[in-house]
């Protein structure tokens, strides 16, 4: 039921861990929050030192020039950002809608379809979309959105469903409109779970966006494929390392936001 190509932290895993709520958070405390960026910075520093001192062939040096690298990273982040915006715009309202009265019945069906769809390998999705919409950025974004909307959708729904029904009733009972209860009670209480879904989606996007290179979508994946195809190890490792660091950095930012945005009093 989880992701196919990218193994990013998935709410499915979180859901299993929910057997003991808080277990994850305990294991990943502030110490963990500090460790992660240090790890990323050290690795980045090591990379910079290697890049500055390494003896590279011309074919390797050109894509590994700082400006070229920066361009690849920006391309990659562009894929991630555009897809993420679309994912949020689709996933959150849809998740809210599917937890409202009449649509609630459709919830298991939608989740079932979405879960089955998640078993599809991302690379297959990319190629199929390319045959349909052609190569390029647009197809890549569509594939990425299809692929990463589920965690946001699911966590929005799980988060909202997890709000104590008595609190909703208390809100309605004191005369708050359905919209007011949603905005002032349900969504704030669902924020931790929803944000965890957003972080999952972002990490998933960073990883999956490496595959965009197969359909000319650009990004850091290009370094990896070029490295493999042309047997240029320096490119391959640079690409792989930078993607991994980027994913870890995005994950860390997500965790920080989760910790900060967690409503007080919970």
């Amino acid at each position: 039921m989880t992701s196919a190509t990218d193994p990013a932290v998935d709410p499915a895993v979180d859901a299993q861990a929910d057997v003991e709520p808080g277990g994850r958070r305990d294991g990943f405390s502030w110490r963990g929050l500090l460790l992660q960026p240090v790890l990323v910075l050290v690795a980045l520093g090591a990379f910079a030192v290697w890049r500055a001192t390494a003896d590279l062939t011309d074919a390797e040096a050109r894509p590994l020039a700082w400006s070229a690298l920066l361009g690849s990273i920006v391309d990659h982040l562009e894929l991630v950002a555009v897809s993420a915006v679309v994912v949020l715009v689709i996933g959150i309202p849809l998740g809210v809608l599917l937890t409202r009265g009449p649509f609630r019945r459709a919830t298991p069906l939608v989740l079932g379809i979405a879960n089955t769809g998640q078993a599809a390998p991302a690379i297959g999705l990319f190629v199929l979309l390319a045959t349909w919409l052609g190569f390029g950025f647009r197809s890549a974004v569509v594939a990425l959105v299809l692929y990463s909307v589920l965690p946001v959708l699911r966590n929005t729904m799980v988060g909202l469903q997890g709000v104590d029904a008595r609190l909703v009733e208390a809100g309605r009972g004191m005369g708050m409109s359905a919209l007011a209860v949603l905005l002032r009670v349900e969504l704030p209480l669902a924020v931790p779970v929803m944000l965890s879904g957003v972080r999952t989606a972002l990490v998933l996007l960073v990883g999956t966006a490496t595959l965009a290179t197969f359909i000319d979508g650009g990004g850091l994946g290009l370094l990896i494929t070029t490295g493999i195809n042309l047997n240029l190890d320096a490119l391959l490792y640079s690409g792989a390392l930078l993607v991994a660091l980027l994913a870890l950095a995005v994950d860390w930012v997500g965790r920080v936001v989760e910790t900060v945005a967690r409503p007080k009093g919970l």
Partner: peptide, 29 residues
């Protein structure tokens, strides 16, 4: 909704909103 604002409602454990302070909870209506 208008009707309910004229009728106080108390449930088990108070049904307090956990993300709001005591003062905010009381000040909602």
């Amino acid at each position: 909704d208008r009707l309910r604002r004229r009728i106080g409602y108390v449930i088990q454990a108070g049904g307090l909103f956990p993300h709001m302070t005591v003062g905010t909870n009381i000040g909602i209506v």
